[in-house]
C-alpha cells in the first residue's frame, strides 16, 4: 500500500494518479462510445448452407431492414461445407463482437448430439428464433391410408414393413421419423436419401411409404394433391390448410416437429450488443412488408426473443437427445 494514501491524500492528487484518471476517463469514454457505436462496420450474417435455402432466403429478406435499423450494411455470407459444421464453427471461433451473426436451422442442435464436433448449443446465445416450418406426415396421394390412425394401425400390424425416407442419416426428417416410432410405438424402416428433396421424391415415386418433411419443401405437392398430408406435427392447425389435423389433437402431443431458423452470436458477446441485436431483429420481424415476404416463402413467423428462444432450444435439445439415445443415432 502506498504511503500517501495512508496520509489521507487521494490517489487522484498524485501525478500518476492524475494520469491514471485521465487514462481511465479516456478508456471509459472509448468503451461507452464503442458500445453506443455498435455497429461501426458491416455486419455479416454467416449462413453455413448454400444460397437458395430457407436460411438464405429469410436472411436476405431481413438484410435491408436490419441495415436500416443498425445504420450499417448487413450482408449474407455463405460458408458452406461439412454439413454445416464449417460455418457454425467459424462463428463460434470468431470474434464475439456481434459483427458475425450465425443463421442456423435445427442441425446446430442435432449435430452436437450425434457427432464429435467442437461446438454445442451452449457456445451460442440465441438472439431470435425467427421462423419455423412445421413438419408434415406425408404419404403418396394414392396410398391406402387416409388418416394418421390408418397409418399407425398398418405399421403396428406389419412391424418394419413400411418404410420412411429421410434427407439422410442424422437429418431432421430422420430424427422426426425416429420420434414418430417412439411416440406411436411402431416400427418403420428408415431409408436415408440424399437430401430432403430426394426424400419427397421417393414418396412421390412410390419407392418409400411415408416421410416427415417440413411444409416449406412440399407445400406445392399438398396443394396439387400429389402428396397427402395425414397430420401436421405442430401445436395448432395451419391457416393455409385448416383441414389437416394436428398430431396433438390426435393424442400425440409429444410429436411436435418444426424446422426452425434461428439467429445466434457467440455466447461471450457483450450483453449490450446482444440486446441491441435482439431489439433490431424483433423490430424487423414485426415489419409488415417483411412479414408478407417471409410468409410468401412458406414459413411461419415465430419472432421469439432471446429468453423464449433459449427455453425453446433447451426443450429441443432434451427432446432430440432422448430420440438419439432411444433410436441409437450416435457416432
Amino acid at each position: 500500500m502506498r504511503k500517501d494514501n495512508g496520509r489521507g491524500r487521494s490517489i487522484l492528487e498524485g501525478r500518476w494518479g492524475r494520469l491514471g484518471m485521465i487514462l481511465m476517463i479516456f478508456l471509459l469514454s472509448a468503451a461507452v462510445a464503442h458500445g453506443a457505436e455498435y455497429p461501426a462496420k458491416t455486419v455479416q450474417i454467416v449462413n453455413p448452407y448454400p444460397p437458395g435455402g430457407t436460411t438464405d432466403i429469410v436472411s436476405r429478406i431481413l438484410t435491408d431492414k436490419l441495415s436500416a435499423l443498425l445504420g450499417q450494411p448487413v450482408v449474407v455470407v455463405n460458408k458452406t461445407g461439412g454439413g454445416g459444421t464449417i460455418g457454425i464453427q467459424s462463428v463460434k471461433d470468431g470474434a464475439a463482437d456481434g459483427y458475425s451473426i450465425l443463421v442456423a436451422p435445427p442441425p446446430i442442435a442435432l449435430i452436437p448430439i450425434v457427432s464429435k464436433v467442437a461446438f454445442s448449443l451452449k457456445d451460442f446465445t440465441a438472439i431470435n428464433m425467427a421462423v419455423s416450418s412445421p413438419s408434415m406426415i406425408i404419404v403418396k396421394n394414392d396410398a391406402p391410408w387416409r388418416t394418421l390412425e390408418d397409418l399407425i394401425a398398418e405399421a403396428k400390424k406389419n412391424p418394419g414393413k413400411l418404410s420412411y425416407s429421410s434427407g439422410g442419416p442424422r437429418t431432421t426428417p430422420h430424427f422426426a421419423g425416429e420420434l414418430f416410432k417412439m411416440v406411436t410405438g411402431t416400427d418403420l424402416t428408415h431409408v436415408p436419401m440424399n437430401g430432403e428433396v430426394q426424400a419427397a421424391t421417393s414418396v412421390l415415386g412410390g419407392h418409400t411409404d411415408v416421410s416427415f418433411l417440413s411444409l416449406g419443401s412440399i407445400q406445392g405437392h399438398i396443394e396439387a394433391g400429389t402428396l397427402r398430408a395425414l397430420a401436421v406435427a405442430y401445436r395448432k392447425r395451419l391457416q393455409a390448410f385448416p383441414n389437416i389435423p394436428t398430431t396433438a389433437e390426435r393424442g400425440y402431443d409429444k410429436l411436435n416437429i418444426s424446422v426452425w431458423v434461428g439467429y445466434f452470436v457467440p455466447a461471450k458477446t457483450p450483453r449490450a450488443v446482444t440486446n441491441k441485436l435482439a431489439e433490431v431483429f424483433d423490430q424487423a420481424l414485426q415489419d409488415k412488408q417483411i412479414i408478407e415476404k417471409i410468409e410468401k416463402a412458406k414459413v411461419t413467423i415465430e419472432n421469439q426473443g432471446p429468453g423464449e428462444a433459449a427455453k425453446y432450444l433447451t426443450e429441443e435439445h432434451e427432446k432430440w437427445s432422448e430420440v438419439a439415445r432411444v433410436a441409437r443415432i450416435t457416432q
Binding site: P50, P51, G53, I57, I61, V197, Q219, G220, K296
Partner: peptide, 19 residues
C-alpha cells in the same frame, strides 16, 4: 437448381406440380 428454386421462392413463387 436449388439456387433457381431460391430465386423463385424469394418472390413467393413455389415451383411444384401446379407451377
Amino acid at each position: 437448381m436449388a439456387l433457381f428454386m431460391g430465386a423463385l421462392m424469394i418472390h413467393g413463387i413455389q415451383p411444384g406440380p401446379l407451377f
